Amino acid sequence: MNATSRFPRWIAVTTGLLLCSTAFILAYAQRPESRRGGASVVDEPYVGIVTSSGPQDDLYSIESSGVTTQPVRVAAEKFLEGLTEQQRERTVFPVDDNEWRKWDNRHRSPRQGVGFDEMTDEQRSLALNMLGQSLSAKGLKKTQDIMKLNGTLAELANNFDEYGEWLYWITIMGKPSETEPWGWQLDGHHLVINYFVLGDQVVMSPVFMGSEPIEAKQGKFQGTIVMQDEQDKGLKLIQMFSNDQRSEAILMDRKDGNNNLTEAYKDNMVLDYAGIVGSKLDDGQKESLLRLIEEYVGNMRKDHASVRMSEVKQHLDETYFAWIGGTTEQSVYYYRVHSPVILIEFDHQRRVAPFRTSEPTRDHIHSVVRTPNGNDYGKDLLRQHYHSHTH
């Protein structure tokens, strides 16, 4: 079902729901038939995800976080040293290159950089060490488990050309440096991480994490499972709400189709706030909301995650929580957390491979984390850096 055929469903919603979900309707109307309308979208001037009021200024600044990024830099340097000259030539891009914006969470997409599938064992070890120095232990495990489940999907679909544990690519943007901006990107099916570094500051977004299936019930990676905490903590929060709070938070009580709005090629989405605002939550509900956000932010290395969470807490009363779908232990649903400084989407999707389904299922999950108001890929920090330094 395409965006146009969804639109009448929204019109049928009650007036109150229409008012709180205007942004949702407009966003769907803007959604292209194929996000791979690629180059033209990526070449548009970057604005970032903003509300219809426009960008909110002065949210981000270049300042010391007090957390060293040296281990990440050293690991990236060693990774690059371990590549052949030919591999390095197609792996390194300028720090302000549009290559950042060409990521795609789908399996059929041209990729740049060096793929894990072509790496030697030593090169893979160096690549994983770079990820390990950037991410928390939980974040690294989740990353590797998503890669493994892409291998499980290859087994289920009997298609090892389009799916597989090692069909993921790394690019380096800029030159790893103590003072100059640089970063890295991991790009592949159901797993995309953009990691920007400036001095001791880190911006890790956009991040896409998901899987189909979410659990390997047989095969090489039997027992691997992902995205359960993201799923369960969202459900726990909505179940804590009173009836009046639910009436504000729930945009639609039936989930029909795929609802994520800010996946690939959606860097300039205009998306208004919807749902219930944090200032209307009690202390226990606010704590549950923070734990939910921390589940995503906590994929970063611990100390940098703490810095990021301090940003989030400053805007907690301005943070909106929106929901689509049921609220039982068996329900499928979508939720969104949206504040001036963080945007999180979680979505139960239809099955795609190897057997398509018409209804969403808990066995196919997508999640996206963004930094609204112009700082995905560290763009706002990069802009400020260029403003104060000659390049």
Rank of each mutant, 00 (worst) to 15 (best):
D256W: 13
N2V: 00
L126D: 06
W10V: 13
S134I: 01
G278S: 04
Q123N: 02
N299E: 05
V341Y: 04
N158Q: 14
S52E: 04
R101V: 09
D244S: 14
D145Q: 12
R362S: 07
R108C: 06
L59R: 04
E77N: 09
H315I: 03
E311G: 00
G16W: 13
F7A: 15
S34E: 04
G151D: 02
S34K: 09
Q349I: 03
D57H: 11
V369H: 01
K78N: 13
Y333R: 03
Y46W: 09
H338I: 04
L80C: 01
E165Q: 13
G278T: 06
T371L: 05
F355E: 15
I365L: 08
I225E: 12
S64L: 08
V297R: 01
S358V: 10
N129S: 12
D43A: 15
E81F: 05
R6T: 06
D117S: 15
G199W: 02
K78E: 14
D253L: 09
D232P: 00
L381A: 02
H387P: 00
R88H: 06
G139V: 02
T224S: 12
D363L: 12
D380L: 03
T179P: 00
R383S: 13
E178H: 11
Y46N: 06
L135H: 03
M269T: 15
E263Y: 03
R9T: 14
F93K: 10
N299S: 02
R88I: 07
L251T: 11
I172M: 05
R9C: 10
N268P: 01
E294Q: 11
W166E: 15
N268I: 01
Q330F: 03
N129A: 13
V41P: 00
S242M: 07
Y265L: 08
S310D: 09
S65T: 14
E77Q: 14
N194I: 07
I324S: 08
D161K: 15
G139F: 04
D303N: 14
N158V: 12
Q218R: 08
T120F: 03
P213Y: 01
E287C: 00
P8K: 09
F196W: 05
I238R: 07
R291D: 14
L343P: 03
S5H: 11
G38P: 00
F7Y: 14
R383N: 12
S358R: 09
T84Q: 10
Q87T: 11
R6A: 10
E311L: 09
A322R: 10
R351F: 08
H348A: 04
E318D: 14
Q330C: 00
T120E: 06
L83S: 07
T68E: 12
I193E: 01
R31H: 02
L126F: 08
K233M: 05
I344Q: 01
V297A: 02
E155R: 05
R246D: 01
Y335F: 14
Y195M: 02
A264C: 09
E248V: 12
K220T: 14
W182K: 06
N259D: 13
G54Y: 02
K220N: 07
A249N: 07
D283H: 01
